[in-house]
Design a protein around this nucleic acid. Structure first.
Lengths: 217, 217, 217, 217
DNA sequence: CATGAATGAGCCTTCATTCAT
DNA sequence: TATGAATGAAGGCTCATTCAT
């Protein structure tokens, strides 16, 4: 029911352009691109996509607005890439090499760990909090496809777990969506800088979902 | 990981202004106001606050844009009232008159039932999907306050349940937020017009949260 | 080899919005639209399409820039309609009801009269001086089509004249284009406010084209 | 009434920078300058001055945008020089050394030949199709002055011809402008790569202007 | 000489809001 | 009450031009 509190501007960052995040030489282009993406992701999450102007992002980086267009074609493209980065963190890494040896429950734990790590990151937070509505229809489809693929991953894990007995019988579809809800809401209340580390959050989440609130005798 | 599918425009509504929803006499003003609010809530949720223009809302009602200003001072005020309507559905109704007789678990069940009913409604859906970022800072505080109050309600219930033994020991804060996450995400995937009725959804949610995924021996 | 000298701003027009050109009641919309078109045509011709901002046009009319968007969807649409107005002046009026009775030469004279009247008008001048390059590709095709149709008209007239002996044998294609050139260049040097009236210009043009520079014995 | 069809990109030019047009040694600078001018003239005519970016020109030459600034101070200067090149082709070459021996008609024929050769060239085409409106006011005056000088040339020739009886009596001013119109419009419809060679075009133009459309008995 | 990077200036377009009828 | 007309404010995007390497 709550949502992102504005972060304390990080002491207005260092005065240098690119906030001193760039030192390399020729691969600088890609590096700068990443810095823009991460900054944009953060600001989008803090203020909302439409409340964020390109000047806001540029200011944060101590660069000018047109400079952003050296790295991205449009504001929309920036958001698209941010969200694709988040999705790739889950999709691009296969769940486990020798997956044959692990139970569904074990896989689920690993998945939750990775998903939460993604969601508390700037990119993942932006994926959830900004959503896909601001995107152009065609880009919206791209991100939705990625999201659906991630959802499918969890459903598969649940099915496997139910099959091998490591997870209690349940409807994989509904369960997955309720589970994702619990995790997707994290950006609205959890701060990595708070008392609980990400590992702790993963553990709490697993406890909540695995044990259940009903006392076990 | 998924989000709102565009609703099918409700058969483009009847051709008459106000979509024929107004018949009364003098209290029409308040009625019309409600119709605007509900329509706005729906469209905001479908397209996003900033993607929705006042013309969109006016068109949906077959009225003109300035007419909206007879009922609301600003677009911001519309959103504020929508979200306050949602919050009021939870806040304004005390959980149970003689709450002394019920256990925490019983209260939790009632709370979940009411909260989910609220969240699948146009107002509640808009509260979650639009969020408070589009609101003016002062209005944002108002809604946040309401959300916090609702969160507090659940924490209290959890504490009571843990105390009376009807709920397994848990950290009320974390548990509440994860629980709210599971429910708040509902608007992104659940359709009241689908296979599962709201009652069913409440039951599934309770099952998910109470039983836990770990098999009980 | 010369081109439009900037017109002397017409004493900065009357101070009233719409330059006092609007008096009607309900058909005002269409009237205002026409006033915008004519003003835009004039300014486009004077300064060039890209050198003309929407503010320039709005200022000329003592209205604000967004007001232009009540009447037109885009700057491009304004130019398109201007040019279509010009073309319609030629295309929409059949050359002569009882064309069977007139020779090609007679038809040619009428055509020249009408074409020159069109070309010295604001719309026609803009058609020639602004050209179609600033238009969106799809709109460019529309105007080109109209231009081609007009060219075809003259070719047909020339053919008929050659056939009936009222015009000396010639290649209709080349002749038409050279002829159009003589007329299309008029906006670059002729001023209706100068010594020669439009009728006079028509006569001079016909003299030039019909008689030829070679002395007739 | 028609205008420039897009030229077929010249087989996208050779892949080498400067399109392989430069081989010399030290006077390369001036050579490269010329290549830029001709390329710019061509692209300006095809797409229009404002639709052409410096990147477009640089790409065509397989060089980078800032490199253009080694040869020209501004985009405006490029256009100015292009148009001055065209004008110089007419102005800088005296019409005929021993002009005393030739009639006005003979001079006219030579003038037309040279003017049309100029106008079908990249520079001349750009002079006409781009016009002087995009130029800075001061540069505009320079080009206008040149154009006026050329117009004066023809008027003088016409006067001489009328005086020596080789040209039929006519108003030199009007006649010159109509004549220029016929020729200036050539870039809008004539292609050197088409059926008619430039010599042929000169002849057709002379026929059109000298003989007249009225049948001579 | 060449160029990747960066930017100031400017324009089209949108939209919430106001006003006159 | 209702609305067509009008607008101030603001944002995304482009591009000629400059600068550092």
């Amino acid at each position: 029911m709550s949502e992102a509190a504005e972060r304390p501007k990080a002491a207005k960052a260092s005065r240098r352009a690119w906030s001193g995040a760039i030192q390399g030489r020729s691969e600088q282009f890609e590096l700068k691109r990443q810095v823009v993406l991460r900054t944009a992701a953060r600001v989008f999450s803090e203020r909302g996509f439409h409340q964020t102007t390109l000047v806001d992002i540029a200011d944060e980086l101590h660069i000018s607005k047109p400079t952003l267009y050296h790295y991205f074609r449009s504001k929309d493209e920036i958001l698209l890439e941010v969200q694709q980065m988040a999705i790739a963190q889950i999709i691009d890494v296969p769940l486990e090499p020798e997956s044959g040896h692990s139970t569904g429950l074990q896989q689920l734990k690993e998945f939750v760990s990775r998903y939460i790590s993604m969601i508390v990151d700037d990119f993942g937070t932006c994926l959830i909090m900004t959503g896909v509505l601001p995107l152009q229809p065609e880009n919206r489809l791209i991100v939705r496809k990625g999201s659906k693929d991630i959802e499918k991953m969890m459903r598969e894990i649940l099915r496997r777990g139910v099959a091998d007995g490591s997870i209690a019988p349940c409807d994989p579809k509904i369960t997955a969506m309720l589970f994702f809800g619990a995790m997707n809401w994290v950006p609205y209340w959890y701060r990595t800088s708070g008392e609980i580390a990400v590992d702790g959050l993963v553990q709490r989440t697993l406890d909540f979902v695995l044990t259940g609130l009903e006392p076990r005798t």
